[in-house]
Design a protein around this nucleic acid. Structure first.
Length: 567
RNA sequence: UGCCCGAUGGUGUAACGGUAGCACAGCAGACUCUGAAUCUGUUUGUCAUGGUUCAAAUCCAUGUCGGGCAACCA
């Protein structure tokens, strides 16, 4: 299915923000809808950001608008160019083939940066001072905190415009040490909303900035820079998460007190994503990386966009997930199964089926002569006829999955057992005649006979056998490293109590050497594979001459559930 | 504590004063050369109490519970 068709087929998402936007479009309130996605480059983007990206770009896409990617880089102490680059790559990947046209670009065809506006933001601060609406305050951080809690005016609140102007100019010139003075808005000292109690606008902070170098030693605070950046870019709908709801009066106050000629943007808030069995805060993800609890930001177990991508999930799957969860103001925890379903649904449609054995058990088909090799037809994707067929080699010695044989089978086990029959996918029905063990009782080999007329299309091929299993020809098999990933945490809410690290899943990664059908030698990074009856896999970026596959997600396994119930 | 926000099955959402629907999960079955996919059926819900109304998940009031903010972070 083409992406375009997929978009058309998907019901247009509807939520309270889109309802508002649709209303504005209907009344022609703005010439064009303009949103933005404004991450701070102080970490990698995660699936919660994906929700926001899909919302902001989705709205632009659906209402003929534009969405800017803007680095909210007002705190150089915590930011880094590495993050700028990863954010750009992740956004491009997520919107690729979907909302690329809606991506707003600066004249340099780069993302936007709040730091692009530092000169203008500075002038806005000067304008506020001149109007008597901002003042330089010499209180220490602790004192400031104390005064604000008490709803008491700063003793510096009534400095003259001239003095404020002089002090602010000198702050900029670097005449004062870090943290010694700040610029504050003059609003209401005892407002019920803390963010209106003369909030900070600028602080002195000597830090090398990844975009502006050492040009500045004062940096605007989020509240001051954000609304003005939105305004300067012509943003109409500034969409953020719930924790900024209480900041909205300040957002509006700044814009309304600057006598701005253009239409003002408006802020709307929605609930951030919480996912079961996952931690989402950048701080905790950073901790996992720094303490080497994972291999990096793009470890396939991480909920980061880069980790999810490396795991083999497609942007379409992630977008469908984002659509499916909806947008509200309710802080709930989305079940991981919703994500897993979106991934499986996507991969089922697109992945090439292949035969691969993860934990090999050798079997010998005694009535097939040694040296005999035949090529069998195998369907590449039953969900997509255009994917065609391939040949797979069959011979006397094969590998099957150890799990597919049980010497003492539980009830309803319809795979291979002593004296039992099973179909080898695309090949013959075989019967297990003998179980060969070593001195310690470990099964080393199975000796079987094939019903030589039962090959697909053959005389007895219609014979009903309850089970069908996958296999690979031992002589033709290709070895590959497979990385079996599982959820990173063992509990639905890892950060609900105490230290989230104590809930780390010790089995979140298992590495095996698997036996693959030979066609997988030519596997490509862009292709998604389903190892039949097992899971979906994608080539890892570490893969070179030696193949490395990441397990994206398992197939649903009703039998495992059944077996679990029995035990 | 103050201010702000929220509450619909197990989970996430829809219903915009007029039949509580969808998805995921679960359960049961059909089909199956993937115990997958697909198909069929199905269990489970409007936080509470009042009020307005012919009619309330929806509007109002009060309460309960949950979340957020009170960084020279964003």
């Amino acid at each position: 299915m083409s992406l375009e068709k997929q978009d058309l087929a998907a019901p247009a998402p509807s939520d309270f923000i889109r309802d508002i936007v649709a209303g504005h479009v209907a009344e022609k309130k703005y010439p064009q809808i303009h949103t933005r996605f404004p991450p701070e480059p102080n970490g990698y983007l995660h699936i919660g950001h994906a929700k926001s990206i899909c919302l902001n770009f989705g709205i632009a896409h659906e209402f003929g608008g534009v969405c800017n990617l803007r680095m909210d880089d007002t705190n150089p102490a915590k930011e880094d160019i590495e993050y700028v680059e990863s954010i750009q790559a992740d956004v491009n990947w997520l919107i690729g083939g979907w909302a690329e046209k809606e991506l707003g670009l600066t004249p340099a065809k780069a993302p936007f940066y709040a730091s692009d506006y530092f000169d203008q933001i500075y002038e806005f601060a000067v304008a506020l001072i001149k109007k008597g609406k901002a003042f330089v305050c010499d209180l220490t951080p602790d004192q400031t905190d104390e005064y604000r809690r008490a709803g008491k005016a700063s003793p510096f609140r009534d400095r003259s415009v001239e003095e404020n102007l002089d002090l602010f100019t000198r702050m900029k010139a670097g005449e004062f040490p870090d943290g010694s003075r700040v610029l504050r808005a003059k609003i209401i000292v005892d407002a019920p909303n803390i963010w209106l109690r003369d909030p900070l606008l600028y602080r002195i902070k000597r830090a090398d900035h990844h975009q502006t170098g050492d040009k500045w030693c004062i940096y605007p605070m989020y509240d001051f820079a954000h609304c003005l950046s939105d305004y300067l870019e012509g943003i109409t709908h500034s969409i953020c998460t719930l924790e900024f709801e209480v900041h909205r009066p300040l957002y509006d106050w700044i814009l309304e007190n600057l006598d701005l000629p253009k239409t003002l943007p408006h802020q709307y808030e929605f609930a951030r994503l919480s996912l079961g069995y996952t931690v989402m805060s950048k701080r905790k993800l950073m901790q996992l990386v720094e303490e080497k609890l994972v291999t990096g930001w793009d470890d396939p177990r991480m909920p980061t966009i880069s980790g999810i991508r490396r795991r083999g999930v497609t942007p379409e799957a992630l977008r469908n997930f984002a659509y499916n969860i909806g947008i509200t103001k309710y802080n709930g925890i989305t079940d991981v199964s919703v994500l897993e379903h979106a991934i499986r649904e996507d991969l089922n449609k697109r992945s090439l089926r292949r035969l691969a054995v993860l934990r090999p058990l050798k079997i010998v088909i005694t009535n097939v002569p040694a040296g005999h090799v035949e090529e069998l037809d195998a369907v590449n994707n039953p969900e997509d006829e255009t994917a065609g067929k391939r040949k797979i080699p069959f011979s006397r010695e094969l590998f099957i999955e150890r799990d597919d044989f049980q010497e003492v089978p539980p009830p309803k086990f319809f795979r291979l057992k002593p004296g039992g029959e099973v179909r080898l996918k695309y090949a013959y029905i075989i019967k297990c005649d003998e179980v060969v063990k070593d001195a310690s009782g470990h099964i080393t080999e199975l000796r079987c006979t094939a019903d030589l007329d039962s090959k697909t299309g053959g005389a007895t091929s219609a014979r009903k056998v309850k089970g069908t299993i996958h296999w690979v020809s031992a002589a033709h098999a290709v070895d590959a490293e497979v990385r079996l990933y599982d959820r990173l945490f063992t509990v639905p809410e890892p950060d609900a109590d105490g230290d989230f690290r104590q809930h780390l899943n010790p089995h979140s990664l298992e590495v095996l050497t698997a036996k693959l059908e030979p066609s997988l030698k030519d596997a490509t990074a862009a292709t998604r594979y389903q190892f039949e009856r097992l899971a979906y896999f994608a080539l890892d970026k570490d893969s070179g001459n030696n193949l490395i596959f990441n397990r994206t997600i398992t197939l649903k396994d009703t039998w495992a559930k059944e077996a679990h119930k029995a035990s």
